[in-house]
Computed example of a mutant assay.
Amino acid sequence: MLKKLLLVVMSLIASIGMAMAAVNINTATEQELESLPGIGAAKAKAIVEYRKANGNFKSVEDLKSVKGIGDKVFDKLKSEVAVSGTTTVATAPAKDAKPPKADKKDAKPAAAASSSEKAKK
C-alpha cells in the first residue's frame, strides 16, 4: 500500500515538473525555443518566422507545419511545449557569448601606478 502511495506521489511530482518546464510556442523567443530538444538556431528561427507569417499556433501539432520539424523532432519536444501560458524555461547564455575583457589601459597594477606617480613628483 505504501509503495502505491509513493508511486502516485512521485507521478504527481513528475507531472508538475513537466508542466513547469513549458515553452509557449506563440510567445517564446528564438533563444527560449533553442532550449527544446531537437531545436537549434535554424529551427528556432524557422518557428518564429512561421509564427510571424501565419499567426499564432492553434495547437502544439501545428509545429509540424514548420519546415524542419517532422514527427521525430515533434515527438521529442511535444511534452515541453504549449500554445498558451508563460514560458517557464530559463534561457542559457548564448553559446558563443564571451565574458567582457578588461580594458588594459584602465587595469594598471597598483605598484606600477604608485611608482609612476612617485616619478612625476
Score class of each variant (00 low, 15 high):
K72H: 00
K72P: 00
V73Y: 02
V73A: 08
F74V: 00
F74R: 04
F74W: 06
F74E: 08
F74G: 02
D75Y: 06
D75E: 13
K76C: 01
K76M: 05
L77T: 01
K78A: 10
K78M: 09
S79G: 12
S79W: 14
S79A: 12
E80R: 11
E80N: 09
E80I: 01
E80M: 10
V81K: 04
V81H: 06
A82G: 12
A82K: 12
A82T: 14
V83C: 13
V83E: 12
V83R: 12
S84D: 15
S84L: 10
G85F: 05
G85I: 03
G85H: 09
G85C: 06
T86I: 03
T87H: 07
T87M: 02
T87G: 04
T88N: 14
V89N: 01
A90T: 00
A90M: 04
A90W: 00
T91Q: 01
T91I: 05
T91Y: 00
T91E: 02
A92D: 03
P93G: 03
P93S: 08
P93K: 07
A94W: 06
K95Q: 03
K95M: 00
K95P: 01
K95A: 07
K95L: 01
D96Y: 01
D96P: 00
D96G: 01
D96E: 04
K98Q: 11
K98T: 07
K98C: 05
K98A: 08
P99R: 05
P99W: 07
P99Q: 05
P99V: 04
P99N: 07
P99C: 03
P100T: 02
P100W: 03
K101D: 10
K101G: 07
A102V: 04
A102D: 10
A102R: 04
A102F: 05
D103L: 08
D103K: 08
D103C: 07
K104M: 04
K104E: 10
K105S: 11
D106V: 04
D106E: 14
D106W: 09
D106C: 10
A107I: 03
A107D: 13
P109S: 09
P109F: 07
P109Q: 06
P109K: 14
P109E: 08
A110E: 12
A110C: 02
A111L: 05
A111E: 10
A111Q: 06
A111W: 04
A112M: 15
A112C: 12
A112F: 14
A113K: 15
A113D: 15
A113E: 15
A113M: 12
S114G: 05
S114M: 13
S114Y: 10
S114C: 05
S115Y: 15
S115F: 14
S115I: 09
S115G: 12
S116E: 15
E117F: 13
E117M: 14
E117S: 13
E117K: 10
K118E: 14
